[in-house]
């Protein structure tokens, strides 16, 4: 049984590297990624699981890092936006101008990358279902959908 009490040293497997960090069991994964590991690409916005700016991948699946305890992620593989190195989705977002203010973009790209990895032939219905999670108030989603579809059609 894994257990943590008070502030203790935990090991997190982030973007392919094992990171050692001090964390309280009450610390969210978002807080530790940003404030302890300096991975500020993962955005802090609502802090309440509503907007998904803080989306990271846990064993390849998108999760809200603001609603996950850092200690929960021990033993799992975490991927943040910094861990995506020139994946097709990043290029597609640039080519399709799927970015305006950019605050939601890391969460959007992480989620979209997971979508096209898990469902390489995703239908429009599945794309819509996945993208409903991430709130963007600039682009209107059209360009974001085009970016996702351009990766699917590669």
């Amino acid at each position: 049984m894994i257990e943590f009490h008070d502030k203790s040293i935990i090991e997190l497997y982030v973007n392919g590297d094992l990171k050692t960090v001090a964390a309280r069991p009450a610390d969210t994964l978002l807080f530790i990624l940003r404030e302890s590991l300096g991975l500020t690409g993962t955005k802090n916005s609502c802090g309440n699981g509503d907007c998904n700016s803080c989306t990271v991948l846990l064993d390849g699946w998108p999760v809200k890092s603001c609603l996950m305890l850092a200690v929960e992620a021990v033993g799992h593989e975490i991927t943040t936006i910094e861990g995506l190195q020139d994946v097709p989705m990043q290029k597609a977002f640039v080519e399709k101008s799927a970015i305006q203010c950019g605050y939601c973009t890391p969460g959007m790209i992480i989620n979209s990358h997971a979508l096209t990895t898990i469902y390489p032939d995703a239908s429009d219905e599945i794309i819509e279902e996945w993208l409903e999670s991430n709130i963007c108030r600039c682009t209107g989603y059209k360009e974001i959908c085009e970016a996702v579809k351009s990766v699917i059609n590669m």
């Binding site: 049984m1 894994i2 257990e3 943590f4 009490h5 008070d6 309280r24 069991p25 009450a26 610390d27 969210t28 807080f31 305890l69 200690v71 929960e72």
Partner: peptide, 21 residues
């Protein structure tokens, strides 16, 4: 941020969970 502290347990079996509770 959660302002209060608590302990975290991740049991591997039902028995461990019941016993730690």
């Amino acid at each position: 941020m959660i302002t209060f502290d608590f302990d975290y347990y991740r049991p591997d079996t039902i028995e461990e969970a019941i016993n730690v509770y």
